[in-house]
Nucleic acid binder design. Structure first.
Lengths: 202, 202
DNA sequence: GTCTATAATTTGATAGAC
DNA sequence: GTCTATCAAATTATAGAC
């Protein structure tokens, strides 16, 4: 069934692309309607306001991209395997959608009150089970005692930040888009090594 | 001399504060004029356009905040000391100006062509001397052979990213502003340890 | 240098016909 | 469901008086 998208989906896709590329504030609803190939009034018929459209898109993007990550954190893998899988999967998600990081960070910089009401935001952070696992392994003497929040922040930083400064890296290291991807793929081995090293008892 | 600021400085300061707090796009020149306690037309008399005002502020912020960091990277300290000092100093800069990170990252997400023309952006990245030092130490067998760009990205990520997700951390870990600062200060020991560990030959 | 007033454009949103 | 036409508000920028 090579169906053509329905109107709602066309608007949704056009808006997603523009929001990611130019940011929410610099994207007008007129631009979105134009890109979707429909009329401005029709956009308003489906999504009543720009704010509403944004909320839908944000929630959807978060759910879509974090489902697998949560599964990994909540799995029964060993800590070491879990870290390796999480880093690899997260990296792959961002390789496919490299604008996601700066988009989310722009959102985080906005009015926090509104954001916290979006249930979607919680998907960004670690899970209870993972925290517990760090705690238990330390108690058993298998790893260094560590602050789980610090450790999770280390992990998030090393995985996502390079995407936020992608253009800076490409510029300064004089590399192409493809070479940047290689650069990132190298980190799938590098980052878990750093993290696991930090947990080892010396 | 408790001089009152001249008009240009008043505009500059008001704009800086608003840009950092609300982002460039969500700040109108009217807001800036109001905050500076002057008229809208006068703002235009000093800085011809909003874009121009932004460029001035961005350049100034970069220069101001990276001067000391460059000095450290270009000093004759040992690699280990250098990393420790750099992390500590950078962390302090951001503790004093926590909105700087998301501001800069929002800028990086904008039209890159315009940004690269701002000489200021180069201050963000490492120096030739530091890269050379990593290279030399590896050659002498004192540290693991490493990709300097990867290493510098690790360092930048671990230092700055936590500030970008400050509100997320505070929300999820249920901590106050002050506790967040403590959280960050703990990283002045943590981050160098992680980085130096990564360089050690196993 | 500083102001008032206003032009010119853009933007989010709606009314109303088909 | 989809469109044309338009409103109302906000925004950047300028003209011109003092």
């Amino acid at each position: 069934m090579t169906r053509h998208k329905n109107t709602e989906q066309k608007i949704f896709d056009a808006a997603t692309e523009l929001f990611l590329e130019k940011g929410v504030d610099r994207t007008s609803v007129r631009d979105i309607a134009a890109k979707a190939g429909i009329n401005l009034a029709l956009l308003n018929y489906y999504f009543r306001t720009k704010e509403n459209l944004f909320n839908s898109i944000f929630s959807e993007l978060m759910k879509e991209n974090t489902r697998k990550l949560i599964e990994i954190l909540d799995s029964d893998l060993s800590l070491e395997e879990k870290i390796q899988k999480y880093v690899a999967e997260y990296t792959d998600v961002l390789l496919e959608n490299p604008l996601l990081v700066s988009f989310v960070m722009a959102i985080l910089h906005r009015s926090w009150d509104k954001i916290t009401q979006l249930e979607a935001i919680s998907y960004l952070y670690g899970t209870e089970k993972f925290t517990q696992q760090l705690f238990d392994e330390a108690k058993k003497g298998n790893i260094r005692k560590t602050n789980p929040t610090q450790f999770f922040v280390d992990m998030l930083s090393l995985i996502t930040f390079p995407f936020a400064i992608k253009l800076l890296i490409m510029d300064k290291a004089s590399i192409t888009e493809d070479e940047f991807k290689t650069f990132i793929r190298e980190r799938k081995k590098r980052v878990p090594r750093i993290l696991i090293n930090e947990l080892k008892i010396k």
